[in-house]
């Protein structure tokens, strides 16, 4: 019984990561289509290096994600610091909905508001759209990893450190890894975001996921839109996603245990 369950669980785990493995293999596939393997080749990566649109997409994704990560974690840090270790049912009830509500509803709502006020859709609206979700997510993350250390802060106070000194010498160094992790995960969620971006962007502005989406809708029209050319564009996204996601999961899990 135990052995059977064990085998099944590990097979299932492997299946979870198999698609990504196929994607990486196909990005080295000489053939432009996913159906079969026709020998290894770097042609899609060479193509990607010449791909100006993809470079623009990567750049836009990067700047949006960096801004969104920093902004959301700053706002969330202040809030989490103010809340501390107390139970704040009402505040949490206001902070959590962005996480649980289906993304498409949130995207539609933002789309309508930006259109209603006549905002110019582009970098700023996309960044704000991502941040509206990220800020809540960063808050939850920081609450889990901890930004208040009541006993340690008390100890510092009794040892003669004032409020600022305590913040600088005790709170900041201890909260720092959590802050970095929160920035990394919100950066990732923004960097790879698709649905929210689709609804909040305007003419002329696109991120990498949007570019790939548009190309995927007309496969094989030109070299850039061959499926395996898209695989090559996806590979760096996948590697960034996996490394940040694993680091985040491991860190938050270790904090929960404490």
């Amino acid at each position: 019984m135990r052995g059977l369950l064990r085998a099944y669980t590990f097979v299932l785990m492997a299946l979870l990561y198999l698609p990504v493995a196929f994607m990486i293999v196909n990005s080295f596939n000489e053939d432009p289509f996913m159906e079969g393997f026709r020998g290894p080749s770097l042609r899609w990566f060479e193509l990607a290096l010449r791909d100006v649109q993809a470079a623009v997409g990567y750049f836009n994704s990067f700047t949006v994600a960096l801004a969104s990560g920093l902004l959301s974690v700053s706002l969330a840090f202040l809030a989490a610091y103010a809340v501390g270790n107390r139970r704040v049912t009402l505040f949490d009830a206001l902070a959590y909905p962005p996480i649980v509500i289906p993304e498409i509803a949130e995207a539609v709502a933002l789309f309508m508001m930006f259109h209603t006020v006549g905002a110019e859709m582009g970098w700023l609206t996309v960044m704000i759209g991502h941040t509206a979700f990220n800020v809540a997510f960063a808050y939850v993350t920081l609450r889990a990893t901890g930004v208040r250390f009541e006993n340690l802060e008390n100890a510092a106070r009794t040892l003669g450190a004032g409020g600022l000194r305590t913040f600088k010498d005790v709170v900041l160094p201890l909260a720092f890894p959590g802050v970095v992790v929160a920035i990394a995960i919100t950066f990732l969620l923004s960097f790879t975001n698709f649905i929210k971006t689709l609804f909040t962007t305007g003419p002329g502005f696109y991120t990498l996921p949007l570019l790939i989406w548009n190309r995927a809708k007309r496969p094989g029209v030109e070299e850039f839109t061959y499926p395996n050319a898209l695989n090559a564009l996806f590979v760096p996204l996948v590697l960034i996603s996996l490394s940040i996601a694993i680091a985040y999961t491991v860190y938050v899990m270790s904090k929960r245990k404490e």
Partner: peptide, 30 residues
């Protein structure tokens, strides 16, 4: 911080990010 007391806490509240030396030195440095 202005009372001049020494306190040992139930969970000790030693600063985990500092060495033994830095923990003991904390009150003097501030």
């Amino acid at each position: 911080e202005k009372r001049g007391i020494g306190m040992v806490f139930q969970d000790l509240a030693l600063f985990p990010h500092m060495s033994v030396y830095d923990n003991v030195a904390f009150g003097l440095r501030v």
